[in-house]
């Protein structure tokens, strides 16, 4: 199994007059796990299906491992895919399902069955071969689908929202398993999800998509700490969106005013004038000596932390603070301070 690099060159997809994917360039390095993240209808699944060869791009080329695969049918691409519905063949046993691709590739039935059994062992389902697929639980079906994809030793493994049909607890353990498996095998993985928590947990890199194009690509931390736009910031977790004013720019830093607050932040190429600020809720801190008057509208106890809804001169803010330590109640008049590392200047959305 050689990790292969995937390269999109000007890939776009159009259905009639609807632009499903705007022409874009993107590289997925070999051996990494890259997540396509975005709301439904953003084009992420279409992009994935174009890698698999299930949809033909309207323009551009796709290269896998340096080979142009744009015109190749799915079966000739050395790519495997795990489907959202798992797509296990209901008229075949588990073993027949896992062996299907091997038999398609021309292996004898016996050899295929032997390797399929090994693959089932590999996903923790030894001896499940003779079962019918619909006798199995969701998590087990998921593992069968995974074994069926892995047994072909593909250069590229594709996941289309693989966890969306599992309950919350199973989802957590499956996503850890997928990540561990990917790192053990060193295979290139493209993973589609609309769940940012899932994306943060499994990815080397995340590509956030919006309106049929790429909004921003980067490591999980880059996207969380330095989102380019309001959309990326709000999609990558809770965020307070505040309007401010850039009053001066000196070197890499800008002086930003928002209500009674004055901050010095990296200007990130933005000009003087009105600007958009993102305040992560964990950067908003209630304190007796804060510069910002904040009326506590609501306090919600969440176990390890407390969420406060605050009314302030710069707008309504969400603050998250540890539940150990001083606490406030709805109706309290408090003051808030900001931690500068949780505040970032962003571009407005188009």
């Amino acid at each position: 199994m050689t990790p292969a690099r995937i390269e999109f060159r000007g890939i776009g997809k159009r259905y009639g007059t609807v632009q499903a994917v705007k022409p874009l360039d993107l590289v997925v390095e070999g051996g990494t796990l890259v997540t396509l993240l975005g709301p439904s209808g953003c084009g992420k699944t279409t992009l994935l299906r174009m890698i698999a060869g299930l949809e033909a791009p309207s323009e551009g080329r796709i290269l896998i491992g340096g080979r142009d695969v744009t015109d190749l049918p799915p079966g000739e691409r050395n790519v495997s895919m795990v489907f959202q519905s798992y797509a296990l063949f209901p008229h075949m046993t588990v073993l027949e399902n896992v062996a299907y691709g091997l038999v398609s590739s021309g292996l004898s039935r016996r050899a295929a069955a032997r390797r399929a059994e090994a693959a089932l062992d590999g996903v923790g389902l030894p001896g499940f071969g003779p079962r019918q697929t619909f006798e199995m639980s969701g998590g087990q079906q998921q593992r069968v689908a995974l074994a069926r994809a892995l047994v072909l030793e593909p250069e590229v493994l594709l996941f289309d929202e693989p966890l969306s049909n599992l309950d919350a607890r199973l989802r957590r353990s499956m996503r850890d398993d997928i990540r561990a498996l990917q790192q053990r095998l060193g295979v290139t993985v493209v993973y589609v999800t609309h769940d940012q928590g899932e994306a943060l947990a499994v990815s080397d890199r995340i590509v956030v998509m919006r309106n049929a194009g790429i909004a921003q690509a980067g490591t999980p931390m880059e996207l969380y700490v330095q989102p380019d736009t309001v959309f990326v910031a709000t999609f990558m977790g809770e965020a307070n969106h505040v309007r401010g004013m850039i009053e001066a720019i000196e070197g890499p830093l800008a002086t930003v005013a928002a209500g009674p607050l004055q901050m010095r932040l990296p200007h990130r190429g933005l000009p003087m004038g009105p600007c958009d600020l993102i305040l992560r809720p964990e950067a908003v801190r209630l304190a007796q000596d804060g510069p910002l008057p904040a009326a506590v509208r609501r306090a919600t106890y969440m176990g390890a932390q407390i969420e406060y809804r605050l009314a302030t001169p710069i707008g309504d803010l969400l603050a998250i603070m540890p539940s150990a330590g001083p606490t406030w109640q709805a109706g309290d008049d408090a003051r808030a301070a900001l931690r500068p590392e949780g505040v970032v200047l962003v571009r407005a959305d188009m």
């Binding site: 799915p74 079966g75 790519v79 797509a87 299907y100």
Partner: peptide
């Protein structure tokens, strides 16, 4: 589609 990606014609 699954069958197609599993190298079936």
């Amino acid at each position: 589609e699954a069958a197609l990606t599993l190298r079936a014609s």
